[in-house]
């Protein structure tokens, strides 16, 4: 099965994505769990610094995001 991005203004097919299989999904979940074990021990200060970086990136990208 594939997942499709289609432009609803023109009906144009933008992109097709192959659906992940169960093994790929499980591998991702295991990787996320691995990162959780270190992430939850970080300080609020460190997390906040990264979250502010995400905010800055959003502001920079907002006008020319081709998605």
């Amino acid at each position: 099965m594939s997942l499709e991005s289609k432009n609803p203004a023109t009906d144009e097919l933008l992109q097709t994505y192959t659906e992940m299989n169960n093994q790929e999904v499980d591998e991702i979940i295991n990787c996320v769990e691995d990162d959780f074990h270190t992430w939850h021990k970080t300080s609020f200060t460190d997390r906040a610094k990264l979250m502010r970086s995400a905010a800055t990136l959003l502001k920079i990208k907002k006008k020319n995001w081709q998605i």
Binding site: L3, K6, Q15, D34, L57, I67
Partner: peptide, 30 residues
């Protein structure tokens, strides 16, 4: 399923901001 591009863009934002690579992941599934 119709906004996979947006989903991957969000994942990239967190990665580019310096978050651990797998702390936020997108599953491309139905």
């Amino acid at each position: 399923s119709n906004v996979c591009g947006s989903a991957l863009a969000i994942e990239n934002i967190f990665c580019e901001a310096g978050f651990p690579a797998d702390i936020f992941r997108t599953l491309l599934i139905g």
